[in-house]
Design a protein around this nucleic acid. Structure first.
Length: 499
RNA sequence: GGUCGGGUGGCCGAGCGGCUAGGCAGAGGUCUGCAAAACCUCGUACAGCGGUUCGAAUCCGCUUCCGACCUCCA
């Protein structure tokens, strides 16, 4: 089965066909760096990280471009007297806009690293492409899709609507509605139609971020950067354009308009939109306070949650829902995800310890494993269905445990079956899902800790053999207090750090 | 108000015409000095009402509730 993708522009699931055999160009709208990322942003970027990883897993050579918006994103009503978000923050804090940009870019990257997302191939910034943006504005004007008014330049949506059946398609909007928009906005006088939008904005005195352009001392409109940077690094036509659902309108709609205005064609063949992360059943948003930051989740420092959750638990939590569905974040679901994640990783560990001298490859267990792993990959082919792929892996856990505790004979299963399972788990868990073993994060002290624990367990075992229960229980209880679990099993005692 | 998307077992969440995921919680069991953990086994639910069909959670209509977009947001 071939890869199918839900294409927002057609509203249907389509078989994926790259423009150039074996290669894929993918552009994803990145963050505006005027404040800390919130966890909703993270879900989107994790979703696209998994898509990126899976495309590479399939063997494609992927150029993944994800921008950083550091100018042009306005606060409040667009096209009015609104202020650039970064410029405003800098003015309020009395520091350079680029200090704001640096601070929050760093923060964003730190969080992305903790979520174990791969870096994009190119991470271009809007301010690094002012010249190209000015050039695109000129091109849009030259081709008749833009006009100047008082030093600002607007995109003529009406002209586009008259000439091509493009505008409004992605977001399912009716052009008549767009054209007669009656909202009471300022500066509407400069625009010919309510639906027109600024591609170059004349800066007023307050603005700190400004560049000299033919029309005014100003700055580029928010949507322009993505048109410019996707075109520059991926070409006028590329394969995949992604972003959050809330960017469909007006951002992506306007982006398409600009590309058409400047290049005469729409930019991407497949548009992928990830859905919102909800908190308390409502969309999370930086601007209305209904949010929780990744850091708060990692530390547990929030009224919304009862304890801390690690980045990988969050990642697993995201994987349990399809990227195209809304997902409600709450404490009970996170606890459930944590347990599930641990059980999955525990099964993988168990799997690693299994081996057999029998190389045979046609055992029932081998067949079961092969089919299940294959099914999991097929689920990924169906529009990156991570919850289903994950479900397939969970179905193998009882088999792994039975092989481990002897309910199933390892040699009957054979080494081939074990190798299949190991390869399958590793490919899916680490390569595609981007999960990782978190215990490895403990600064390389694990060996020492492990040695120490072996000693402690050994001493407790002696106490137990002497039926010295007070001593044995004291060791167990004290370790428990410092969040180390002792697990008495059939073949001795093992230990684990508690989450 | 307009447009779009949803309401699935105690909770989260897949599926989207027949084969009735998965996780968590819960119940029973194995193991254990006790306990915990772990492991094994167990769940026929699809908002309501009509309709189409041999057959509907899945298609159609109505009702109702929720959310998103329409204004800055991933």
């Amino acid at each position: 089965m071939s890869l199918k993708i839900q294409n927002s522009i057609s509203g249907t699931k389509e078989v994926f066909q790259p423009i150039h055999e074996g290669r894929i160009g993918m552009y994803v709208c990145g963050p505006t760096v005027y404040s800390d990322v919130h966890i909703g942003n993270c879900r989107t970027f994790v979703s696209f990280d998994i898509i990126y990883r899976y495309l590479m897993y399939l063997g494609y050579k992927v150029r993944y471009v994800r921008n950083i918006t550091d100018v042009g994103h306005l606060e409040g009503d667009a096209d009015s007297n609104a202020e650039d978000k970064i410029s405003k923050k800098a003015r309020l804090e009395q520091i350079e806009p680029m200090e704001i940009v640096q601070r929050y870019s760093n923060g964003f990257h730190d969080i992305m690293r903790r979520f174990n997302t791969l870096e994009p191939s190119i991470e271009p910034r809007a301010t690094g492409h002012i010249l190209e943006q000015i050039e695109m504005v000129e091109e849009i004007i030259k081709r008749g899709y833009g006009y100047e008014a008082n030093g600002s330049v607007y995109f003529d949506t009406n002209k586009l609507i008259q000439e091509a059946d493009i505008y409004g398609k992605l977001s399912g909007r009716k052009v008549e509605d767009l054209l007669v928009e009656t909202r009471d906005l300022k500066n509407q006088g400069e625009k010919r139609h309510p639906s027109d939008f600024a591609i170059w904005i004349k800066a007023d005195e307050r603005h700190l971020l400004r560049w000299n352009a033919p029309w005014s001392d100003g700055f580029p409109g928010w949507h322009l950067e993505c048109s410019v940077m996707s075109t520059k690094y991926l070409g006028e036509r590329f394969d995949i354009h992604g972003g959050g659902n809330d960017l469909k309108f007006p951002h992506h709609e306007n982006e398409i308009a600009q590309n058409y205005g400047a290049c005469g064609n729409t930019p991407a063949n497949y548009w992928i939109h990830s859905n919102m992360l909800l908190l308390n059943g409502k969309k999370m948003s930086k601007s209305d306070g209904n949010n929780i930051t990744p850091t708060e989740l990692f530390t547990g420092d929030s009224d919304h949650i009862s304890k801390a959750y690690s980045p990988m638990v969050l990642r697993f939590f995201f994987l349990q829902a399809h990227y195209g569905s809304t997902l409600d974040l709450n404490d009970t679901s996170l606890q459930a995800a944590e347990k599930g994640y641990q059980r999955l990783m525990e099964a993988y560990k168990t799997l690693l310890e299994l081996s057999s001298a029998n190389p045979k490859s046609d055992s029932p267990v081998a067949i079961e494993i092969e089919q299940t792993i294959q099914a999991a990959v097929e689920e990924m082919n169906d529009d990156f269905n991570t919850p289903k792929a994950l479900a397939r892996l969970f179905e193998l856990i009882p088999t792994i445990n039975k092989l481990s505790d002897g309910q199933l004979n390892v040699d009957d299963a054979g080494q081939y079956a074990l190798d299949l399972a190991k390869k399958g788990f590793e490919d899916l868990l680490f390569v595609v899902f981007g999960l990782k073993k978190e215990t490895e994060d403990h600064n390389g002290h694990m060996d020492q800790l492990d040695g120490l624990m072996k000693l402690v367990i050994d001493m407790r075992q002696q106490a137990r053999e002497n039926k010295d229960w007070p001593t044995s229980d004291k060791i167990r209880d004290t370790l428990n207090e410092i969040k180390i679990d002792l697990k008495d099993g059939k073949d001795g005692t093992s230990w684990a750090l508690k989450a």
